Simulated assay, not measured.
Amino acid sequence: MVHYGHSNQLRQAKAMGDYLVVGVHTDEEIAKHKGPPVFTQAERYKMIRATKWVDEIVEGAPYVTTLETLDKYNCDFCVHGDDITLTVDGKDTYDEVKRMGRYRECKRTQGVSTTDLVGRMLLLTKSHNSNVVSRLYSSHTDNFGKGPKGHSPWTGVSQFLQTSQKIIQFASGKEPQPEDTIIYVAGAFDLFHIGHVDFLETVHKQAEKPYVIVGLHFDQEVNRYKGKNYPIMNIHERTLSVLACRYVSEVVIGAPYTVGKDLLDHFKVDLVCHGKTEVFPDTDGTDPYTEPRKRGIFRVLDSSNNLTTDDIVQRIIENRLQFEARNQKKEAKEMAVIEALKHKEDSLKTEAALVNN
């Protein structure tokens, strides 16, 4: 997958240098070393290109990073998160560059991983996790608005904790200029994927100098019109996912569902766009785009990409057994490495104690 954890890694990597080259593996390489990929290589190439800290991508980059690869693309060093990456036979994929001092590490984003997101999607097939209303008022809920252990009652299992600092790091911080065309779009943007990227790119092309504002609905609102166990990502996760996209200038966190007069006037909106997906009525049955239609600033766009969040979830469900096996295998492999490192550390401590004695 490509998620905000990856975007945060790319942001940190870019801060370490001047020009960021991102190597993206093929489907074949990922299937060999990690299990089936969720997004295709073509989707991943385009999504990484759309991440605002990326200067260049290398398609089909080798799974094991070598000095030869770094030199080929004129890179001084490579960057990876502080999590473990192993080949199919359990070897560190960055062993060579680490030994030669051409490796840097950045902090992994706590509370999210591909394994975690796949697990969340698999929960969509569990009956105990589908009835949001009963979970809200059940005895297992700490209080209204929080699920077990403080998790969102709508996303159920998210462990991501948002901070103002993280939003500042992801946001561009640029104010709209007088010559800019203010374009507003709204939605869930759940499990941010290539369908969203293609739509936002199409929105961005609607003006010579676009300033694209994305209104993100709260989890409760998304669940109202999407149902099931949606959204899979909570409002904070969706905020970072959208902010990482180079076609977006600003995000409204918890935007009102109806795009009314106050919102349009406050942001001085010139154009309101929506994709070809269905427009659900507001709670009172009214069209949420009545005001922009009346002003003649509403535009339906066709990005020629019909991929939806439902489609992504369906990919996971269709390959459920493979993904469950992938998650278990990855966890077992990582635990084995952690145990080996712990054993090595304990041995060094024992040796040091013997020397001191």
Rank of each mutant, 00 (worst) to 15 (best):
M1E: 05
H3T: 04
Y4V: 08
H6C: 07
N8W: 04
L10T: 04
A13Q: 07
G23W: 11
G23D: 14
V24N: 13
V24Y: 14
E29F: 14
H33F: 08
P36K: 15
A42G: 05
Y45F: 15
R49L: 13
A50K: 02
T51R: 03
W53D: 07
E56M: 09
I57M: 07
L70W: 02
F77E: 04
C78L: 01
G81Q: 09
D83Q: 12
I84F: 07
T87I: 07
V88G: 01
G90H: 09
K98W: 00
E105P: 01
C106W: 03
Q110P: 01
S113P: 05
S113F: 03
T114C: 00
V118M: 07
L123M: 09
L124P: 05
N131R: 12
V133P: 05
D142N: 07
H151G: 05
F160P: 00
L161G: 08
Q165A: 14
K166Q: 15
A186L: 05
D190R: 11
L191Q: 01
I194V: 14
I194H: 02
H196A: 06
Q206V: 11
E208A: 13
V212F: 10
V214W: 07
Q220H: 11
K228S: 08
Y230H: 08
P231M: 06
T239F: 02
L240K: 03
V242T: 08
A244N: 06
V252K: 12
D265V: 09
F267E: 01
H274C: 01
T283E: 05
G285Q: 05
Y289Q: 01
D302R: 00
D302T: 01
N306L: 01
L307N: 00
L321I: 06
Q322E: 13
R326S: 03
K330E: 10
K333Q: 14
E334N: 10
L348Y: 08
L348Q: 15
T350F: 12
V355Y: 07
